[in-house]
Design a protein around this nucleic acid. Structure first.
Length: 717
DNA sequence: TACACCTTTAGCTGCTGATG
DNA sequence: CATCAGCAGCTAAAGGTGTA
């Protein structure tokens, strides 16, 4: 049995920063749940193993994805484990070894081979004599803060009394020698009997070297987190506080608490990823309630007298090591979760300006009484939509609001790093920047150059799959971004539950416009992205747009077109449908017999096929009688001219989401219903009633489906 | 004035839960 | 001199386009 074991494998695990092993076999001495103060460390249970090579034993963590080996009772005391993947970190002054890949070999032995002595994982950090030496630090993962020792027997074997030789205690029993704080690149190999040696870190101390009340030091760290400031109140005082998490060059996590004026300066000058120099700031033991996995047990506090600054140099601190969530995985992520994303900017939409009132709650109608009176001047809200891609060939929509939208400075092809971006579910999965979200263009992070290379070498005509079911028309995103590639027939749309209840669905349909109405334009605010009308009052009701730019007296026009189903298309999509800008259409409209009728004739020729991207959603609003009304609505959010015999302007390059060739058009012709787009006049006199709309369908089944849908929707309201 | 359609985030409140 | 919760869940507050 003993011959199975690899000699000195425990020492290898402790000292070697290798991540892969071919033939490292150890015996499982013990299995226990990883706890901190009696609590499981995370929602995913994490387990610790005491592994033995016959001479020594070492405490390791098991990556939760290997928990199935425990559940299957394969990893039990006495079992032999072939370790193939290992991750080794320094945390809280301890070596934390995590087994990332292992297989169980052979049959478990009935007893433990030899009389192994547990190797301490405590690093020989520099400590002051006053406090830290007297109060031994605790292993960040496995220490029992109440000093009860390791919690035995959680898995695979019956309960056993908590050993007096707790993990912490065993570190003090390291009579055999201490482990040197091995540098990752150090080739020094320590086997069997280990050499006590103190690290020479006085010149450039690590966070592990800091102890309470220490003075005469300077440390450097990279900001990983920035929270607050938020208000607090206690018996003695009230104030505001900001908390940072910094990591030093060996990835030790240090909490930094910023008080008083210091947080104002910090907020102004520093950001996530900034390097901070801190000199002689107060160090104190962290209150238990703030202790957290990955953080040292001491913290630094800064106030207005503290000596710190943001540095330009990284002082040897490696780039941020961040765990990213790949785009396709976001489909499975709970709404409102915060994730980190590294992706390529595929498209940047246009900033859209709209008002901030008259909100009807998306979930439930109860708070709809916050409705604003129409025509009242109100503040502006701005939205920007960005499409991100990664090598999974998926696209996701990233939304920014107001200041965040203004501050966006990314372009197509940029690598963007989003830290703590929020997963939202609105028409499929999307991302929204919240206050805490950190946005960095072209960051210095691992994986960035690979990502850039992937984007640069992407073959032309590559097809992306959209994870969001849609995006906003007002974002001005190009039509080559397809939420779904296959077009639906009208019947399929009408028979579906698209857009019902809280669903927001985006899909494609093919169609030919056969009827079009006049006077589909109105004079709009001249501020970019704002579609509000100037017609009634002569000024924009958005407060910030009160002063209209002169523009040589030129008016700016927007299209507000409604098409049947009922479909709705505003600028800029309306412009695509019309084949010209709303401004031009408006000029033409002045002379009905001139170019406008030509435009209509061309548009209605039946030769121009469109691929429409349509978004279905149920809208709700509060009626005057206090009851809610619901209506299913179809909005055109993108229109792509896919075939026009007379039109040489058809830009083939525009169609990047897959070939839309003659064959596809033909398929649409035969497979799908011919869609009659009746662009009716929004003016009352010429606006057909709903009944009239329905009668224009030549397919009675579709008409029936539509009117039934309309009935059921109004019945719901 | 009523109706139809567009649809988010910040900030506050109040609870958490093992232990004796 | 020492100061610090965190989170889920709820709610307020934020305009714009148009017609009848």
């Amino acid at each position: 049995m003993a011959e199975l074991l690899t000699a000195d494998s425990c020492a290898l695990l402790v000292n070697d920063y290798e991540e892969n092993y071919d033939n490292l076999v150890v015996q499982v001495q013990d299995v226990f749940p990883g706890t901190l103060d009696g609590h499981m460390l995370s929602k995913t249970a994490e387990y610790g193993l005491l592994l033995s090579d016959g001479r020594h034993s070492v405490l390791v963590m098991l990556l939760p994805k290997l928990n199935h080996l425990l559940e299957a009772k394969k990893i039990i005391s006495g079992a032999f484990l072939k370790i193939e993947g290992v991750r080794c970190r320094t945390m809280g002054g301890y070596r934390v070894i995590t087994i990332t890949y292992a297989t169980v070999i052979g049959e478990p032995a009935s007893d433990i081979i030899g009389d192994p002595e547990e190797i301490s994982l405590k690093l020989n950090a520099l400590v002051s004599k006053s406090s830290a030496a007297a109060k031994p630090k605790r292993h960040p993962f496995l220490a029992q803060l109440k000093g009860n020792g390791r919690a035995y027997g959680g898995v695979g074997r019956p309960s056993e009394p908590a050993g007096s030789s707790s993990f912490q205690a065993s570190s003090s029993s390291s009579k055999k020698g201490k482990i040197r704080a091995a540098h990752p690149h150090s080739s020094t190999f320590i086997s069997g009997s280990m050499v006590a040696e103190s690290s020479s870190t006085t010149d450039n101390p690590l966070f592990t070297d800091l102890v309470p009340d220490m003075i005469d030091y300077t440390v450097y760290g990279r900001i990983y987190e920035m929270k607050g400031p938020h208000s607090f109140r206690n018996q003695r005082s009230t104030g505001k506080v900001m908390t940072l998490v910094l990591k030093d060059r060996e990835n030790n996590g240090m909490r930094v608490v910023v008080f008083d004026r210091a947080y104002e300066v910090m907020k102004r000058e520093a950001a996530v990823d900034s390097i901070l120099r801190i000199t002689d700031a107060r160090i104190q033991e962290m209150a238990e309630k703030f202790q957290h996995v990955g953080l040292l047990l001491n913290e630094i506090t800064l106030n207005d007298t503290s000596d710190w600054e943001v540095c330009a140099s990284d002082h040897g601190i490696p780039p941020m090591a961040v765990a990213f969530t790949a785009l396709p995985l976001l489909r499975a992520v709970e709404s409102k979760s915060r994730v980190n994303v590294l992706a390529i900017v595929k498209e940047v939409g246009k900033r859209h300006s709209f008002g901030a009132g008259q909100r009807v709650a998306s979930d439930g109608a109860q708070d709809a009484d916050t409705n604003h009176a129409p025509g009242q001047v109100s503040a502006e809200r701005r939205r920007l939509e960005v499409q991100l891609v990664d090598p999974s060939m998926n696209i996701i929509r990233f939304t920014l609001w107001d200041k965040r939208a203004d501050m966006w400075n990314g372009f197509r092809g940029n690598v963007v790093f989003l830290k703590d971006v929020v997963v939202v579910r609105y028409g499929g999965v999307g991302l929204t920047a919240y206050d805490a979200t950190v946005i960095q263009m072209n960051p210095k992070l691992e994986g960035v150059s690979e990502l850039k290379k992937w984007w640069t070498n992407l073959p032309n005509g590559s097809v992306f799959q959209h994870l969001s079911s849609g995006y906003s028309a007002s974002g001005g995103l190009t039509v080559d971004t397809a939420p779904r590639s296959d077009p639906l027939s009208f019947k399929e749309v009408l028979d579906s539950n698209f857009g019902q209840d809280k669903r927001v669905d985006t899909f494609h349909i093919f169609g030919v416009i056969t009827k079009i109405a006049r006077n589909t334009t109105y004079e709009a605010c001249r501020f970019e992205g704002c579609n509000r009308s100037l017609q009634k009052t002569g000024f924009c009701l958005t407060e910030e747009h009160a002063e209209q730019p002169e523009n040589d007296g030129e008016k700016r026009y927007c299209t507000a077109e409604a098409v049947e189903l009922p479909l709705i298309a505003f600028s800029p999509v309306g412009d695509v449908i019309m084949g010209t800008t709303a401004d031009e259409v408006h000029k033409m409209q002045a002379h009905l017999d001139g170019p406008y009728s030509e435009l209509l004739r061309d548009t209605l020729s039946g030769l121009t096929w469109f691929k429409f991207t349509v978004q279905a959603r149920t809208r709700s609003w509060k009626q005057n009688n206090g009851r809610m009304k619901y209506e299913l609505q179809y909005t055109v959010i993108a229109a792509l001219k896919i075939k026009d015999d007379d039109d040489d302007d058809w830009d083939k390059d525009e169609d990047k989401d897959g070939p839309v060739d003659a064959e596809e058009v033909k398929a649409a012709d035969t497979e799908y219903n011919t869609m009659l787009l009746f662009l009716y006049n929004v003016r009352a006199a010429q606006r057909p009633s709903c009944e009239l709309c329905l009668r224009t369908w030549d397919n009675p089944r579709l008409s029936a489906g539509l009117s039934q849908k309309a009935r059921s929707q109004s019945a719901a309201g």
